[in-house]
Amino acid sequence: MIDTLIEMFSYTFLVRAVVVGLLVSLCAALLGVSLVLKRYSMIGDGLSHVGFGTLAIATAMNAAPLTVSVPIVVLAAFLLLRISENGKIKGDAAIALISTGALAIGVIVVSMTTGLNTDVCNYLFGSILAMSKDDVTLSIILAAVVLTLFVLFYNKIFGVTFDENFAKATGVKTGLYNMLIAFLTAITIVLGMRMMGALLISSLIIFPAITSMRICKRFRSVTICSAVVSVVCFFIGVVGSYVYATPTGASVVIVNMTALAVFWIANTLKRREAI
């Protein structure tokens, strides 16, 4: 086991991927609790499809992927939030419109430039080789920003998640904090997308939150538990994918599924005992 780890971390590209991956799983898990409880889970999914479109465009333009993706996905996040709050089109339909639209644009752009090849496969399902050295630096800075803002605004995020009307009526600027949540989510999605894949990144947001809600009863313990679950699952997933030569993103999701099953069973057993 230890030998495998030492061997694994002798590759610098793997060290980079693991560092960024751990940070992204941490950010995603923290935000995920709020998003799942606000019934915004699908926003994460929608944003990852927008991210796919922007990656395709960035590659076609020969630009650095993160610098193109971050602003566009942040914009899309604000737009989705706006629509789901007061639009005539209901939130879930709006998300489907935007995500499939972005996916279509991405596919067209890719097929016109490089053609549908392994690149597309990597965008959709993730690749551990995607991280360059500059990417890592930028990812660490952005992840630090997400974590700092989350800790500073933890109490407000609880307030707007539990009861937005109460918060708004008592003078909390709920619009601002909803935008903050959307902003942080967008950044997290873009950071994690290339490793986890556009189709799989939203699992990092949803799984840990749902898993920890099986057992924990308080907002704070749910948040901490889902952070721990997410980081542990990511690490096991990456090591597993190295040992069995499986795709990284999918392996992480499989480990998350297992964790959810374990927590579910544990909770059911606990309840039985109580009766």
Partner: peptide, 23 residues
């Protein structure tokens, strides 16, 4: 919603906090 009664009551003070992060 997973929240303790105490966490819910505490959130009543949010409006008075303004931009300050902690209670």
């Amino acid at each position: 919603f997973p929240a303790s009664a105490y966490e819910v009551v505490l959130s009543g003070r949010l409006g008075a906090r303004g931009l300050k992060p902690f209670y």
